[in-house]
């Protein structure tokens, strides 16, 4: 069954790595729904968060192919149950319209949004959440002349992850422990407190 999977890649921050990872996905004619690159909890280690819609088998094979790349340290993949994730959205609307016709305060409270900039001609709101939530605010603002809308890639935290610091120490040793060598993915979400 196809579903949304979030692939988390811990890698060296090297030029060309992003293309290398992207070609592994695109050569199999799989669309990247969302892609984010950021620093990670470990200094010098880059973290890519990739969202694709595929079956578990395809995602597992992809994860192994990505992990095989020289500059990649570790790859995890998780379904939506196993992660906490957010996306950030920005909305630009005409200030006069919004001030006149909308109960801005109610709108902001209802969608967890906040105003980032308020000018005479336009106002920019910011909201974060899951896609459906940020989409709902688009719908709500549309009647008031939404000028611009943009949404960021997904950022996700794996519920069960203990972070990368310990693993990184092992990677830096010439002879790593068996735990690291094992090509397994985190799969113990039930042990973790969920919100």
């Amino acid at each position: 069954m196809k579903q949304e999977y979030t692939i988390t890649v811990y890698a060296e921050n090297h030029i060309g790595l992003l293309v290398r990872v992207a070609t592994i996905i695109s050569r199999r004619k799989i669309n990247i729904e969302s892609l984010n690159t950021s620093p990670s909890e470990s200094e010098g280690i880059h973290r890519l968060t990739i969202v694709i819609h595929e079956t578990e088998e395809v995602v597992r094979k992809l994860a192994r192919q990505i992990e095989k790349q020289v500059e990649v340290l570790k790859v995890y993949y998780n379904n939506n149950e196993e992660i906490i994730w957010q996306e950030l959205a920005l909305y630009k609307v005409p200030t006069d319209e919004i001030a006149e016709k909308v109960k801005v305060e109610r709108l902001l409270r209802e969608y967890g949004a906040r105003a980032v900039v308020i000018r005479k001609d336009y106002t920019i709101f910011e909201a974060s959440g899951h896609r459906e939530e940020t989409d709902r605010l688009v719908t709500a603002l549309a009647p008031y002349g939404l000028i611009e809308f943009v949404r960021s890639a997904r950022v996700a935290i794996i519920k069960d992850s203990k972070g990368f610091h310990e693993k990184l120490k092992e990677f830096e040793q010439t002879e790593p422990g068996p735990e690291l060598i094992e090509n397994e993915f985190l799969n113990r979400q039930q042990e973790v407190f969920t919100m």
Binding site: A11, E12, V70, E71, V72, L73, F171, E172, T174, E175, P176, P178, I181, E182
Partner: peptide, 14 residues
């Protein structure tokens, strides 16, 4: 070169 931290050419056999 004998070690690249992000690269594991061969594992310790289980």
């Amino acid at each position: 070169c004998t070690h690249v931290r992000s690269y594991r050419p061969k594992p310790i056999v289980r």
